[in-house]
Design a binder for these strands. Structure first.
Lengths: 203, 203
DNA sequence: TCTATATGTGACAAAGGTGTCACATGGAGG
DNA sequence: CCTCCATGTGACACCTTTGTCACATATAGA
């Protein structure tokens, strides 16, 4: 948690620090991030930083929470009735929504990517809870679909959940790994292909 | 590439260095690996190391190539006729084979995991070519299956290939992330679930 | 104006790693 | 027994980063 000293800072200075952090975070994976770079970019003295945050991790948690909030705000207005909305439709809409958010905030995508591709375990620290929530969320829709006969009863719910989460995560990263940018059309096509396989199988 | 000095070393000493490297590589992601640790474990003087290898990356490439060779030897005897072997069967067998290799060599799994979860780009450096080969390999089977009517013509081949590769990779890592060990039964069940979804879809 | 408290500042010690180099050792051949 | 070359050795100089601390500055209230 940032100190109250930080929170009371003039907006301009706070933003300078947050922007600099986002910049650096999006260019380096977590373990490789150097406070010195952030301090230089934000143009604050070293001593000041330690008056605002405990250390790198503290800063990271804070900045990341800002990003999560923004994404929540963005996705938040999607409320579907499980009874009337099949899981595949929800998945598709959520995917497109996430895709748009990613396109509007490419740096956030890079940050998440750099976070996942870090060996230090910070990823689990930040995501464990969120992922469990997401799982729960999807499980509800899948189970409703099963009851309504929209999904075969013998499909393993947890497996499907994992599959969906990992697909949604990986499409963007594969895309970035290959071209270092997001091509929305390509990604959408990919997502639709996966949904189609999901629905009908390959046989 | 190791120097000839290294290659001419008595087996015992060479192995000590390789074993120490494997040990360290399996406990740290690439960027966090310290030569000092390897040197200490292998009980060789610092100066000697630099007589054998250029640097950490040189050593890593070498040790990794040994692992790849071993895996090739292990998997190598699987030759199937695409005409008579459906893709799903191949996939399943290959998966089980890979699973057994992983169970027999847990350290190698950790090394690969630490490699993937590293932000430095070493992963692409080591794998790019291999992955393209694997893609080509799968594509052949899928296309044959399409011709023989075993897979729907409108399934996107490249997508299916990516999907299969990422599944095969991720099952093990998900498993490790959760329990830090491999539970073969669980993993096999998961793979079969995915194959079943692949075949019939969820509807 | 003075004082107390909060905040700003950057030099610095400490930590921890890397690659090198001058010197040591060993064995083969004259 | 001597020489030469390959190999062994570890102290060390160098670099980079971190977190701290003594001191500077600003602001508000007495």
């Amino acid at each position: 948690m940032p100190t109250s000293t930080f929170l009371n800072l003039p907006e301009e200075k706070k933003n300078r620090i947050i922007e600099a952090s986002i910049d650096v975070f999006s260019n380096e994976y977590y373990s490789a991030i150097k406070l010195s770079d952030i301090i230089r970019k934000a143009k604050i003295p070293r001593g000041s930083f330690y008056q605002y945050f405990e250390d790198k991790k503290d800063l990271y948690h804070y900045v990341f929470s800002i990003i999560v909030q923004e994404k929540m705000k963005y996705i938040g207005d999607m409320i579907y009735n499980p009874e009337t909305t099949p899981f595949t439709v929800l998945f598709r809409d959520l995917y497109i929504k996430g895709l748009n958010f990613a396109l509007e905030n490419p740096k956030y995508v890079m940050i998440t990517k750099n976070l996942i591709h870090d060996g230090s375990g910070i990823y689990n620290e930040l995501f464990e809870d969120n992922i469990e929530l997401a799982r729960e969320f999807y499980r509800g829709y899948i189970n409703t679909d099963k009851k309504l006969g929209r999904i075969r009863e013998d499909v393993d719910t947890d497996l499907l959940v994992d599959f969906v989460i990992s697909s949604i995560t990986n499409i963007a990263f594969d895309e970035i790994r290959e071209s270092n940018a997001l091509d929305p059309e390509k990604m959408l096509k990919k997502a639709e292909g996966i949904i189609s396989i999901l629905q009908k199988g390959i046989e």
